[in-house]
Design a protein around this nucleic acid. Sequence first.
DNA 1: AATATAAAAGACAAACATATCCTTTTTAAA
DNA 2: TTTAAAAAGGATATGTTTGTCTTTTATATT
Lengths: 143, 143
Amino acid sequence: MFNKTIGYALRAVIYLAVKRNHDGNISLSEIAGSLKVPIHYIGKILQSLAKNGLILSFKGPNGGFKASEKTLEATVFDIIVAIDGAAPFTVCSLGLSTCNNEQPCPIHFDVVRQREEIKGNLSKRTILQLAETYETASIYTLS
Amino acid sequence: MFNKTIGYALRAVIYLAVKRNHDGNISLSEIAGSLKVPIHYIGKILQSLAKNGLILSFKGPNGGFKASEKTLEATVFDIIVAIDGAAPFTVCSLGLSTCNNEQPCPIHFDVVRQREEIKGNLSKRTILQLAETYETASIYTLS
DNA sequence: AATATAAAAGACAAACATATCCTTTTTAAA
DNA sequence: TTTAAAAAGGATATGTTTGTCTTTTATATT
């Protein structure tokens, strides 16, 4: 599983994408309330997504967050990298700091191959597509 | 990446597999020293692998640990499950406790498919094969 | 300009994972 | 039967992640 922060981030951006045609902004309290997640915690996450340009944020009265074109076009992979960085996809799975193609750990090439597959899968679907999936049938849930 | 404990566990069982034809046991201090990992911490990990029947352990003078047939036939997947349980491969990637085939999160079916691939990959190679890989060329490293 | 609203930012706290230490138990060898 | 080696087990410490609270900054409205 992804970690908790990634899970919250993905749910939040999908939520914003679902509300993409709403006038005005979506407030932090609405997001936290709808997703049933701790408001301050999700606030930090949205803050860092905004810093990375993956969502829009506005201060002041009627402020809040909003999906942009970039949000809708972003993939699950993009969100993960924005939050955790690329390290999880590059460091040695056995924790060896010296491990690389020249001095590989015994599972190095397996791991490299598998990571390419995973990256491919995580990049296949955009946030907009996931929002649309959510909209197609009432069985889908975000909370 | 796997977590630190999994990394230590895999390196230790591969190390034991490399020493599979040694007479007698491999002591904890030898393992910790060779792999350059904290001795007490790796001790606990080996202890739990022994409890799960994945390696042999012997107390007393000349005691230590040893690879068994089960060790050599085990896969990376088996080691991970022995340490962390199956939860990482079954719980919702977005952290939703209700998520299942009937009430899926938007990425549920993607995740299920990808996990099958990952499980397949992690089950493809045995510890013995990884030890043999290590033995084939001096470029491979365990520490 | 003053006020109210809402996110940003930073400080703090709790929970969990990681790591170490110390004592006990087991057992082989002298 | 005594001794010493080595793992087992329990208790504790450290560090990192996760989560909360408070203050600051920005901005729309009056």
